[in-house]
């Protein structure tokens, strides 16, 4: 009988139950509303800051940084990764360096960025670029190295070489791997950006991370929780709207679906 219900019914029901319980728990006065706001308080903050434009402004600032930083990181990472795959000694130097730097949590770049760039937009961008770049370099290197040699041989006998071979064979063949590298780079960029925004508050550049930190300073727990929810939703949406459809299309068109 349960199988007759549409699939979202049960999760929705459970979510409402949890939120309702939480609301009731806070309202019953057992905890301090300041430290543990009810869902309705968070929702109220959300509505209020949406109307005042504060939330949209902060989201926009954050998205702009994320997109610009990610674009720079990916634009540098793709050719560098290709170079690593193509040239042995670049792989042995830059490739190994990338492997090391990728394991470094990107929040570790923040002190360095502050000293190099000062409390400026560039510092934030730098951290995002560092978060993206190495994951993309490694993914591109790996997927180019894994292109089946048979494709290359077939293309070469048909007269393809140089740029034609790269653009028409190697990159299309490596694309699924490159894309999952981009997705990983995006996730790293998103994390590093939040870290940077919490540490670096720039006049005129008040992003979601800064809003979160401001919530702490003002002891506005509803704001802290609200921003955390927004950060989560933005991350999910990026995946849902951007990466998943491209990945799905790629897999379907090549018959890679399980």
């Amino acid at each position: 009988m349960a199988s007759k219900l549409p699939r979202p019914v049960i999760p929705t029901f459970v979510a409402l139950l949890i939120l309702g319980g939480w609301e009731w728990f806070v309202r019953s006065g057992r905890v301090s509303e300041v430290l543990f706001p009810a869902p309705s308080h968070v929702l109220a903050w959300f509505w209020e800051s949406l109307l005042s434009g504060e939330l949209l402004e902060a989201t926009w600032v954050t998205m702009r940084r994320l997109i610009v930083g990610f674009a720079i990181g990916a634009a540098l990472g793709v050719p560098l990764g290709a170079l690593c795959a193509r040239v042995r000694w670049v792989r042995d130097t830059l490739g190994v360096l990338a492997l090391g730097l990728q394991t470094l949590p990107s929040v570790c770049w923040v002190p360095l960025a502050l000293l190099w760039f000062g409390i400026r937009e560039e510092a934030v961008l730098f951290v995002v670029v560092m978060g993206t770049l190495w994951a993309v370099v490694l993914a591109v290197q790996e997927s180019v190295l894994n292109v089946p040699p048979l494709y290359l041989r077939a293309a070469q006998t048909m007269g393809s070489n140089g740029w034609h071979l790269w653009s028409r064979v190697i990159f299309p063949a490596a694309l699924p791997g490159v894309l999952s590298g981009m997705k990983q780079g995006w996730a790293f960029a998103w994390r590093s950006l939040m870290a940077a925004e919490i540490f670096v508050v720039i006049i005129g550049g008040f992003g979601l991370g800064s809003l979160l930190n401001a919530g702490r300073e003002l002891l506005r727990m509803d704001q802290v929780m609200g921003v955390m929810a927004v950060v989560m939703i933005v991350g999910l949406l990026a995946d849902l709207i951007f990466f998943s459809p491209i990945e799905g299309w790629l897999r379907r068109s090549r018959g890679l679906e399980r």
Partner: peptide, 15 residues
């Protein structure tokens, strides 16, 4: 191009 090769398998480009 004067000598083209047909391989054992799967040399078609899936994209």
């Amino acid at each position: 191009r004067d000598r083209l090769v047909m391989f054992q398998q799967d040399a078609l480009f899936p994209w």
